[in-house]
Structure formats: structure tokens, C-alpha cells
Amino acid sequence: MSHTAHIRSHRKPRRSASTIAMRAGVAGGVLSTLAVAGASGSANAAEPVTQTLELPTLTADLAAQVAQSADVTQQAAASYELQAERDAAAAKAAKQAKADLAEAKKKAAEEKKKAEEAERKAAAERASRAAERATLSASVDTGSSVGSDSSGSGSSSVGSSSSSSATGSAAAVIAFVEAQVGDAYVTGGTGPNSWDCSGLVQAAFKQVNIDLPRVSQSQSTAGTQVGLDNLQPGDILYWGGAGSAYHVGVYVGDGMFVGAQNSSTGVVKASLDYDPPSGAVRVL
């Protein structure tokens, strides 16, 4: 024992167990409260950081990515659509080109067929003209004619007063038209190897410096009207009415005429009964 223990004022007061326990409880409670508050404060401090810093950043990036992805998707769709249109146009062009080629081949085949047919027809016409010339030559050689007075009774018919011997301008006109026998008939033809009826007559009279109108209607009134029973070599024969004739030829004597008849016969020399005329005019 301390030598001062017997002195009351020097004794340390004893703390009761209850006081110590209470103080310990209070301290423990305070420490617990501080710990809970600290934990809660840490949690509360961490949550605003997550909300204000990380989440907005992630949301903005995601929106940018979505927008970028949408742009890429739209561009890809536009590219696919453009390519589809180009492919469709190319397919349509190829189809049209194929159809055009088929049509061109078809037309070429038709033209070739027409050309071959025209050549066959021309060959047939040439053969026909050759046969016609042979027939006409034989007819002339046998002295066949129209209107000869075979009975001696004095009755006459077309061309009975004509003479087979032409002179002067008439002879020149006749020589010209007879030289064209066998040439082709072509509408609007004026020679030298193809004629229509009025073109041949006009060219024949031009040999003797007589300018006739170009068409049959006008040629049928170009001279003096004469009867068919009073024909002379060199007279112009016409078919149809005077002033409205549709065909003309040249009387060459002996009941014969020369004319560019049609595309089948060409220029022929034939008897008047082969195609009897409607009238005649004389310009020589």
C-alpha cells in the first residue's frame, strides 16, 4: 500500500463498473454511428460520380454510335437501290438490244427475199419481152395488120388509109420508138432504158425538135384530132378521153403501134387490135 493511501484526498476515485460499461457503450455507439455514417457517406459519394460522370458519357457514345450506324445503313440501302436500278436498266437495255437485233435480222431476211423475188420477176419480164418481140417480129414478117380491105368491097376499118412507108420527121419518130422496143416500163421513166408511155412519146418527138407536154392527158390534145380510120405514121394514139387520156403511143403504120404498155410487157410493138385506142392527134 502506498504511504499516502491512508490519506483520502490522495486516493484515486474508483470508477464503478456501470459507469465504465456505459461509457464503453456510448463510445461503441459513437464509433458504430461514425462507421455507418462513413459507409453511408462513401456510398452516397460514389453514387453521384457514377450518375454524373460515367452514365452520360456512355449514353452520348451510344447515341453517336447509333446515329453512325443509321447513316451507314442508309448509305448502304441507297447504294443497293442504285445498283438495283442500274442492274434493271442494264437488263432492260440488253433485252431491247436483243429484240432490235432479232427485228433487224427479220427485216434483212425480208429484204433479201424481196430482192430475190424482184430479180426473178425481172428475169421473167425479160423472157416475156423477148418472147413478145419474137411474136411481133413474126407477125410483121407475115404482113399481119389491122384494117386491111381483104374483101375488096371498099369497107375499111382502123388504119385502112395508113401507109407503112414513113418519110421525114415521121420516119425519125418511128425509128426512135421502134429502137426502144424491149425496154422496161417504169412509172415516171424518161429513158434511156426505161420509160412510161408519155415519156417515150415525148422523147420520140423531141428527136424532130417538137416539145410535147409530159403527161398523157396533155399529149392527147397537143395536135389536131384525127379519126382512127385516117391514121398516118407518126400520129399519137391515146386511150381514154381527149384531155383525160390515161395512155398514149405512136402509130407506126400497117395497123401497128409502139407504146410503153406496162411493167409486165415493157415497150412493145403491137397490132391495134391488141389494145384498140380511143382516138388520135396529129402533130407532124
Rank of each mutant, 00 (worst) to 15 (best):
T4L: 15
R8C: 06
R15L: 13
S18H: 08
T19W: 11
T19Q: 11
G28S: 06
G38R: 02
S40K: 04
V49T: 14
Q51R: 15
T57E: 10
T57Q: 12
L58P: 08
L62Y: 12
V72Y: 03
A76M: 10
Q83G: 14
E85G: 06
E85A: 08
D87Y: 10
A90T: 15
A91K: 12
A93F: 09
A94H: 15
Q96M: 13
K98R: 12
K106R: 15
A108M: 07
A108V: 09
A109L: 07
A109K: 06
K112T: 15
A115I: 13
E117Q: 14
A123N: 11
A130Y: 08
A131T: 04
A138G: 14
S153T: 10
S153C: 00
S156L: 12
V158M: 11
A166K: 01
A166S: 13
G168W: 01
E178R: 02
A179H: 12
A184F: 03
A184E: 11
T190I: 12
N193Q: 05
S194Q: 14
L200Y: 06
V201N: 00
Q202E: 03
I210T: 06
S216L: 04
Q219H: 01
G223I: 06
T224C: 12
G227L: 02
L228W: 01
G234R: 01
L237G: 11
G241W: 03
Y246G: 07
G259H: 15
L272Y: 01
Y274Q: 09
S278V: 03
S278C: 08
G279E: 08
V281L: 03
